[in-house]
Simulated assay, not measured.
Amino acid sequence: MSTDPATSASEGEKARGKAYFSIAVVGGLAALGFWYDPPWLYDWLKVLHIVAVISWMVGLFYLPRLFVYHTDAEAGSEPSETFVVMEGRLIKVIMNPAMMLSWLVGLWLAWSGFAFLGLWLWIKIAAVVALTGFHVFLSRAARRFASGSNQMTARQWRMANEIPTVLMILVIIMVIIKPFS
C-alpha cells in the first residue's frame, strides 16, 4: 500500500465517490418504490434502515476508540497523520452517508407505518436526535485532531465511547418493547 499522501487522498476520493454513487442508486430505487408503493416496499425499507443504522452505529463506536489512540500520538507525527486520514474517511465514507440514510428511511417508516403516533416513537426520535448530536460532536473533534488541537484526554474519550451505547439501548427498547403505546 502506498504511503504517498496524494495517492492516499486519491484513493479516499474514489472510495467516497463509490459510496455516494451506491447511496444514489439505493435512493433512486427507494424513490421508485415509494412512487409505485408495492406491498413489499415497507419490509425492504426496514432492511435498508437496519443496515444503515448498524453502519452508523459502528462508526459512532469506532471513532471515539480511534480518538483514544490518536490522543497518545504526537500532533503532526506519522501515526497522528494516519489517524487523521482514518478518521476523515470513517466520517465521510461511512458515518455521514449511513446517518443520512438512517434518517431519511427512518422518517419515511415512521410516517408510513405509524403516522408519527406513539410516545415510544417520539422518545426513539429524541434518542436519534441525541445520536446525531454526538455524531456532530465527533466530527468537530476529528477536525480538532486534524488541526492538532484535541482538547480531551484518552480517558475522556473512553468515557465518551459509552454515550452511543446508552442511546442505542434506549432506541432498541422503544422499537422492540414500545412502552407508552
Rank of each mutant, 00 (worst) to 15 (best):
residue 37 D to L: 15
residue 71 T to V: 06
residue 82 T to E: 12
residue 74 E to H: 10
residue 148 G to T: 01
residue 87 E to R: 00
residue 105 V to R: 00
residue 164 P to E: 05
residue 40 W to I: 15
residue 134 F to R: 08
residue 175 V to A: 15
residue 175 V to M: 13
residue 47 V to I: 13
residue 29 L to K: 10
residue 60 L to A: 14
residue 31 A to Q: 05
residue 127 A to L: 14
residue 69 Y to S: 09
residue 69 Y to C: 02
residue 151 Q to K: 14
residue 142 A to L: 06
residue 30 A to K: 04
residue 119 L to F: 08
residue 14 K to V: 07
residue 70 H to I: 01
residue 15 A to E: 02
residue 169 I to S: 11
residue 154 A to T: 03
residue 181 S to P: 02
residue 67 F to P: 00
residue 91 I to E: 10
residue 78 E to D: 14
residue 8 S to N: 02
residue 36 Y to D: 14
residue 22 S to I: 05
residue 119 L to Q: 08
residue 164 P to K: 05
residue 148 G to I: 00
residue 22 S to Q: 07
residue 48 L to I: 11
residue 169 I to E: 13
residue 48 L to W: 05
residue 126 A to L: 14
residue 53 V to H: 04
residue 93 V to C: 06
residue 111 W to G: 05
residue 10 S to D: 03
residue 72 D to G: 00
residue 18 K to I: 09
residue 39 P to L: 14
residue 81 E to Q: 15
residue 33 G to V: 12
residue 34 F to E: 11
residue 63 L to V: 14
residue 25 V to D: 05
residue 56 W to G: 10
residue 111 W to T: 03
residue 61 F to E: 01
residue 161 N to Y: 05
residue 107 L to E: 02
residue 79 P to V: 00
residue 8 S to P: 00
residue 89 R to G: 07
residue 157 W to M: 05
residue 84 V to Q: 05
